[in-house]
Design a protein around this nucleic acid. Sequence first.
RNA 1: GGCCCCAUCGUCUAAUGGUUAGGACAUCACUCUUUCAAGGUGAAGAUACGGGUUCGACUCCCGUUGGGGCUACCA
Length: 474
Amino acid sequence: MIKTRIAPSPTGAIHIGLARTALYNFFYSRNKKGKFLLRIEDTDRERSTEASLNSIIEGFKWLGIEWDEGPFFQSQRFGIYKRFADKLIEENKAYRCFCSTDRLRNEREQASKEGRAWKYDRLCLNLTDDEIERKLKAGDPYVIRFFIPNGESVYNDLIHGEIRKKHSDIEDFVIMRSDESFTYNFSVVVDDALMGITHVIRGVEHINNTFKQILLYKALGFNPPLFAHLPLILGPDKKKLSKRHGASSIDEYRQDGIISKALVNYLTLLGWSPGDNREIMDLADIIALFDVKRVKKSNAVFDKDKLLWMNSMYIKEMDIEALSDEVLSFIKHQGINGMLSVIDKDRDYFYRVLELIRDRATTLVDLIETARIYLFEDYDIEKKAMKYIKTGIEHLKLIKQRYEALEVWDKSHLEEELRALSEERGEKAGLFIHPVRAALTGRKVGPPLFDIIEVLGKIRTIKRLDRVINMYII
RNA sequence: GGCCCCAUCGUCUAAUGGUUAGGACAUCACUCUUUCAAGGUGAAGAUACGGGUUCGACUCCCGUUGGGGCUACCA
């Protein structure tokens, strides 16, 4: 059985790249009927935070990502790593290094100034047992470095094919820090091996690490898993997407009123496509079709416009109940006051309002702002709408009288009545239509007028017309 | 600098070595229409460059250029 994992480090909110990697791992495991696990890589004590951990878990849940095992925490597994590190030292596959960070930094700086490459010079490899013993006794701080043997490594990347690298290009990297915590490359190998991960799917920035890790797998006596390296998601400037680019965490999109299904759908298509021209796909479709073999090699620029378009498609085409649920949970998540009780009072009316306004909304924020107008009677009247009202005040009075007397309240009767009135007066229907929309919604533009009036119902309509007319009586 | 990865419209992408190089977003035009959208129709828009291999190359090989990533006691 295959097993994949997502292994975030809790040093910030879920950014777009992490979300997509998680999604691909999740899809792949589901497609292959395997398992998917969550592991928190909190070996960096300095940067890991509880807040970040919570927002990652909450974010994955929002995206609909479900893990079968975990979360596991690397910070709780140092004992395990220690055993394997000790074993490597015993077998002379790793060694203690007492070099000061100052010396290392100076060497590196000097080398880069002279335009030459530098890797650790193995000074401490030549230490005699006596010297090591003495330093240990003196309590000198040390790190453990992994000894890179001579040779070359090759592996077959599921996306990129065969990639090779000479060991002479890899340095004896640190696996245990001087504070006895373990570095990423080491803990990730021990964990992936022990947890039975069969497929490691992650960003291309890890290709170089892959060779270090494969060497570690072998030194430790484990079989390496299969690797698939995903293309990067870039900002508009074609640099790796980051905080610099504005909204780079999924939380920001959530707050902007993006529906998680739309975000998932969009992210899925950044680097992968099913091969036919399908774009709008639900989770079941994606899982059924997903395969890492179809993942692109080249990086992709994140296009917010297309995300917004996709979000608007979801808003337009979702079941009305599902859309309502999205709106409700958004309101709760954002802590918007006063709306929930009004919606609950008349759920059917809310559905009709959503149906009326959904076509014109791009985000949940738009949707809620517009819904407000229909839900509350104290809606504001925009300047542009006010102009229509001013010039059309007499028409408003006339149509109000007619509508008060109207018995069948549906859009065809409403339209008939208004058109009859305008014809009687030899005027264009627009002279009525525009002021009425302006009066009823406070907006110059919006849905077709008779749809608005039908949804509003007779009571609200008359009340709203009165309110506006009265503004001019005083 | 060294190592590694990548290269189709502005962007996301499709194309067993044989297609008028397809679709989507964005843009523009037309259409529908009481407004604004949506929808419909259409336009414009790409194989980075140079060499090979081949009857035939977006596709395979080499080089150039360009872009990106990594180069820590971060992950």
